[in-house]
Design a protein around this nucleic acid. Structure first.
Lengths: 234, 234
DNA sequence: GACGCAATTAACCGAGTGGTTCATTCTAAC
DNA sequence: GTTAGAATGAACCACTCGGTTAATTGCGTC
């Protein structure tokens, strides 16, 4: 578990990069890489054990750096946690923005969004765990992140555009609410990852096999569709 | 936050009970009450701050007892957490068992189950938080609770009976899966409470006003219904 | 090539934490 | 009333953990 990493051939790329700007540096004095290294280690540790459960020493062990560096760059544990949370949200927003569905008909666009969200959550369990943890803390740290409330509305905007198009096309009910749709999509996609442990302990893990997951995803698509489509268009 | 509670008139009923058997005792030597008192305090503290975030001293403060008593009765922090979790699940199962829907037609019975779950989760945020916390710990403690896997299948059985009746009546699709239905109901009911903090920070708290919650609940009912009902019976 | 500052290291620290020791008090049984 | 054992209180303790101090090294600059 400690993994001495002595004479590791590939050097894990952390100290071996620096190709961006100051390339070819010998071995030290590389703040950006160190910061990124710390951030990644911290993300893993916080996601695994929560804010209070995470140990600075454990973060250090996941790192090529020393404990001193963590406080040097991030101040204290809570600020580090905040930085991790911020970065995680930033990445998710970025991924969302790269989903191009403007050319699709509304119902197919909606399906795409559902499938994307479902898959994305599955593929980013650490992000899910960070959100779980932040909810345990009643979102107290998140409130200190600016750029959140503003940019995260993009997800709603996307759905809003789909809904408008769907209504115009006479395909969707005229009273659909993008916010509610988003709530439903998130709920099932999130729960699927977040509550896997307790759910499968209670009811078995059949639903988490690959084929069952595909089936569940399709179930979510159907659920959302039927709340959105006009009764006569189902 | 500390609340000295000195000369509290009603004595909070903790030391004032003892009517069960050894009634009228003066002031001490009341193990069952003390244990229950500790358990309640611990539940609140663990639900508020998680396993590692919870402080024994904070639990003591929520109690009429001393720290010594906690370890005397429960051994260590983790065992206390386990006892809390166990009791919480027990209560939920009990509540579920009291929901009598055998006399209702299948579609109405299903609606009742959805509404019950949605409301129950809303009304028991501490339970939700405990489950969230346990999921952060990958269900490692829960696995030590016996009586779980066995008795919790009751929830599925209930749905299974409804589904069978629905299929027989030609009302439900013949391929409905009670497990999947349960997954969907749980997902939305759980998310609604668990992720309230982050969701409302991102998208506003409109959905959590009382009327909006009623609307959401109805939305869940509709969602579930449309996945279950035969297309020609919607 | 000395200066100055950023980056880094190693050792250290005090508060807070889970948990314990030991003596005392209560209660029931004889 | 004595006694045995459960229940309780007060003080105590070892140690973990977040955070710091102070000294050292790398490196661009004049």
């Amino acid at each position: 578990m400690v993994s001495e990493t002595k004479t590791e051939p590939a050097q894990a790329g952390v100290r071996g990069r620096s190709q961006g700007r100051s390339q070819g540096r010998s071995w030290k004095q590389d703040p950006e890489t160190v910061k990124a290294d710390i951030l990644n280690a911290a993300r893993a540790e916080f996601a695994a054990h929560g804010l209070s459960g995470a140990r600075i020493s454990a973060i250090v062990e996941r790192t090529q750096t020393s404990k001193r560096m963590i406080f040097y760059y991030f101040g204290d544990k809570e600020s580090l946690y905040l930085a991790v949370l911020d970065q995680a949200y930033r990445e998710v927003r970025e991924a969302e923005a790269n989903l191009d569905i403007r050319h699709l008909p509304p119902d197919e666009a909606l399906r795409k969004v559902v499938e994307f969200t479902f898959d994305h959550h599955r593929n980013n369990p650490d992000f899910i765990r960070l959100v779980m943890i932040e909810n345990i803390h009643d979102g107290n740290h998140m409130s200190r992140i600016q750029t959140l409330a503003t940019t995260n509305i993009a997800a709603i905007d996307q759905l809003d555009r789909i809904c408008r198009r769907g209504i115009e096309a006479g395909l969707f009910r005229p009273d659909v609410s993008p916010l509610v749709i988003h709530w439903q999509i998130s709920a099932m996609s999130f729960f699927n990852v977040a509550n896997r442990a307790t759910f499968s302990m209670n009811f078995g893990d059949d639903l988490f096999a690959e084929d069952a997951q595909l089936m569940l995803r399709e179930q979510v698509v159907q659920s959302i569709s039927s709340s959105v489509l006009r009764p006569d268009r189902v």
